[in-house]
Design a protein around this nucleic acid. Structure first.
Length: 203
DNA sequence: CTACCGATTGACT
DNA sequence: GTCAATCGGTAGA
């Protein structure tokens, strides 16, 4: 599993662009129990104060503070007693982020099966809270540097074939507002994508 | 302090 | 497809 850790500059851009380009990248987690992770296949962008669905749109609180920090760090929050992982984007002070909604399991399958309590591959990392449980990501990673290449990071897959990913976009899942905006991006026909896989094709 | 709510999931019809 | 468990974050008294 050869990969090159993504730089801080990668995240220093519009969250919709970062979200799009995160598809196909590797999300990796290393503990004393071993390495695990997989390929990112579903993401959502949250656009700072101009996006009512963004946790930071109504100002800074203790929960969302890491979204106001530098790009390339994690924003981990809890919803319905489950953890979800974001990558912070844009310059410090602009609180935007990309929610990692699903990955395709590639390494450390057995470890992720243990943490999830199931052998069913499709249930390991399909959904933002499932993947956090599989990778043992919790509040302690809020603010963590995803560019460090240690413990939890995102890298370019050097073994990836040159073939271009087929990507589609849709409205974001689970929102009570701003549902019309097409800020969810996913790999077409990938069985580890959560929710409905219909909607608008783009490539 | 209390009350309300949710970027979800798993169980169930 | 529907539905509610469950608990930290947040706002308000």
């Amino acid at each position: 599993m050869q990969s090159v850790v993504l730089s801080r500059e990668f995240y220093l851009r519009d969250p919709a662009v970062v979200a799009w380009e995160l598809l196909g990248k590797l999300l990796l987690r290393e503990t004393s129990a071993g390495l695990c992770g997989g390929r990112i296949v579903e993401v959502e962008a949250y656009l700072s104060v101009r996006d009512p669905a963004c946790h930071a749109s109504r100002g800074q609180t203790r929960r969302n503070a890491s979204m106001f920090g530098p790009p390339g760090r994690a924003y981990v929050y809890m919803i319905h007693s489950r953890w979800c992982l974001n990558a912070v984007t844009e310059p410090e002070g602009t609180p935007s982020a990309v929610l990692i909604r699903a990955i395709e399991p590639l390494v450390g399958i057995e470890l992720m099966q243990q943490r999830r309590g199931t052998d069913i591959m499709r249930d390991l990392t399909r959904g933002p809270a499932r993947l956090c449980q599989a990778l043992a990501v919790d509040r302690t990673f809020d603010g963590w540097g995803l560019t460090t290449g240690q413990e939890l990071w995102i890298g370019e897959d050097l073994s990836a074939t040159g073939s271009k990913l087929r990507i589609a976009k849709s409205g974001r899942i689970g929102l009570s507002s701003a549902q019309r905006r097409l800020l969810r991006f996913f790999v077409v026909d990938n069985r580890f994508v959560s929710g409905r896989t219909g909607r608008r094709r783009t490539t």
